[in-house]
Amino acid sequence: MDLSSSLQRLSAHRPQPPRKAQETLDSGLPLLDSGKYARMGDEGWEAVEKLALAALDVGKIDVADRCLRALADKFPGSPRVECLTGMRMEATESPETCLKYYDDLLESDPANAAAWRRKAAVYRRMGKLDRAVEELSAMLDTFYADVEGWLELADIYSSCHQYTHALQSLSHALLLAPQNPFYFLQFAETAYLAADIPLATKMFLTAIDMTDDDDADVPLRDTIPTGITLRAWYGVKLCTHKFITDPRAASASASDTPGPSAATLSQLDDLSRERLRTAYLNLKNESPPVADTEFMSVVATIMQ
C-alpha cells in the first residue's frame, strides 16, 4: 500500500512554509546589537520576541537570553514574556523543571492559555501523549477559540492513528475558521486515512471548490492546478481510484456520507486525471504514463 503511506507522509507535512529561523536571526541580530528596538515602539519589541524564538529554534541560547533580558526589563510580569522564559528553559532544563515552572505560572494566573499550551507541548515531547491530550482538551474546553490548539490536538491524535478523534478536533478547527482551505484539505486527508473515502472525496472537492481561481479570464478547464488545488485533485484521484478498485469503499463510511453515483464517479475520475495530467505536463514537459498505478506514482513526485 505505497499510496496510503505516501499520503500519510503528505498529511504529516505541514501546509505552512517551514520556519525560516536562520533568516530571522540574521536580519534581527543587527537590530538587537544596535539597541534601536527600544525606539521603534511595539513593532520593535515584537521583533525582539520573534528574534528570541528564532534564536531558540537555531539553538543560539545566548542571543535568546539577551532578548529575554531586554523584554523582561521592559515588560515585568507580562504573561507573554513569562511564557518565552519557559520556552528558553525548555531548551536547556529538564522537562520536569519546565512543567513545574508552567504549573507555577498557571497557579498564579489560571487564565494564561499560552502557558497551558506549552505545558501540553512539554508533555508531548516527553512522550506522555495521554497527559498532553488531557491538558490540551482541558485547555480547549476553556479557551475554545484556539484554532492552533485544535490542530495540535488533531496532530497528536493522527500521530497515534486515532483518526476518528483527529477528525473531531479538525471539525472544531473548521468551525472556527471555515474560510481556510488548508483545514479542509487536512480534514480530507485525515478522513482518507480513517478509511472514510466518501467523506474524504467530498472534502477534497470542497477544498478544490474554494481554491481554484474561477475569477480568471480563461475558462477553468484551461487553468493549471497548483499548490493546494493540485494536492486536492491528487486526493480526489486517490479516492476515485479506491472506489473503482474496491467497491465496498463507497458504503464503508463511518460518518454515513453517501458515495458518489457511478456516473459521477467516472466523470470525477476523468476530470481529476485530466487535471493532474495538465499539471504534470506543465511541470515536466512530458506526458505521464497511462496505466493507472504508474500514473499515480509519477504524479506523486510533483507533489513534493
Binding site: P110, T142, Y144, A145, L175, P178, S255
Partner: peptide, 26 residues
C-alpha cells in the same frame, strides 16, 4: 472564563449552520 465563553462555542457553531463546513454526523 469557561462559563463566560461557553456561549461563544454555540454561537460559533450556529454562525455557519446554514452553510456548515462540517459533515452532518459531526
Amino acid at each position: 472564563i469557561r462559563e463566560q465563553r461557553a456561549l461563544v462555542r454555540s454561537q460559533i457553531l450556529r454562525a455557519t449552520s446554514a452553510e456548515s463546513p462540517i459533515p452532518p454526523t459531526y
